[in-house]
Amino acid sequence: MIVTEMKPVDEILGMIEGEKGVFILCCGGCPEGYKSGGLSKGKDLAEAVGAKGVTVTGVAEIEFLCNKALAGVKLNRSREALRGADSILVVSCGVGVQAVGNVADFPVHPAMNTVSMGGRQGLWPGEERCHQCGDCLLDRTGGLCPITTCSKSLVNGTCGGTKEEHCEVDPKRPCGWLKIYQRLAALGRAECLKALNAPRDHRKYDFPDARRSTVLWALEVAAEETEEAVEASRGTDT
């Protein structure tokens, strides 16, 4: 699930300043599930900006804004309300905002900040557990990810900043590398820590460059793109 939070109303007001009317569109997916957004939050927002003199032409919710096709079809039903609006204020993660901007010929404004992809891996991606580094080290680290559990994403062991078993940056968060050591020691595999791990290959780690240009815009990528296109977009841009 993608973790989001509402932007401060003042910031939103700044974005829509000077517009005659705005339409508020809420995602019924993650923000609803995570209770950070959804229709009720959209109505609250309508009230808050309404109180500042902004005309809200309508508030609607669509199940998953990240599903471009669905968003396009359902947005059609709000044609009337959209007619009076200068822009759409989108209560969703950054992907939803981009999807709406792509299917509707309207300026879009994000009403939320996308904080993380914390969630259930498989159903929804969860970056807190796995940062999709593209070169998995779990085999050497007792099944605990150093990229996400270590505050510095170190790959060769503790930085020496462990304090009372916790990370130097946060007394409430366990040191990832200490956990890895303890797990491996308990498994009788502490020697795994002796392997020298090479620096990350950031071509694998980062959002592949080729994707930046190929995904304009197909969120249902696999079905729409040919296998070659998907393969090409995996970023073998050496």
Binding site: N156, G157, C159, G160, G161, N197, P199
Partner: peptide, 27 residues
């Protein structure tokens, strides 16, 4: 050295790099 975490300092919004760690730098 690895270096203390960014949040221990006076530019807390900066990006921590750690492209290499201390072992990587020695290498």
């Amino acid at each position: 050295l690895t270096g203390d975490h960014i949040v221990m300092g006076d530019h807390q919004g900066a990006k921590g790099v750690w492209d290499l760690d201390s072992v990587g730098l020695l290498d």
